[in-house]
Amino acid sequence: MKITNKKIWLVLVLLTIASFLTSKEGLVKDTSLIIIVLLSAFKFLSIGFQFMELKHAHKFWQIFFSGIIVFYVILVFSISI
């Protein structure tokens, strides 16, 4: 299956709605936080690799970009959980 911008856009919209619903679900605060932050990280990577075309870029930039969001996830989890 070919990954297109349109398909990624649709996934991103659905994940945004999923994040919204998760925050309203009244789950245990930590569970909700983990789900929402991981969904954000996935969306971040999708935009970078698909919309910004990092999938065609040098490995260095792919790792650098992924490092930013890994840092964000570690930051949020280490301070908030």
Partner: peptide
């Protein structure tokens, strides 16, 4: 585009 000197 694969060059390390040319990110998107």
């Amino acid at each position: 585009k694969k060059s390390i000197y040319y990110p998107p």
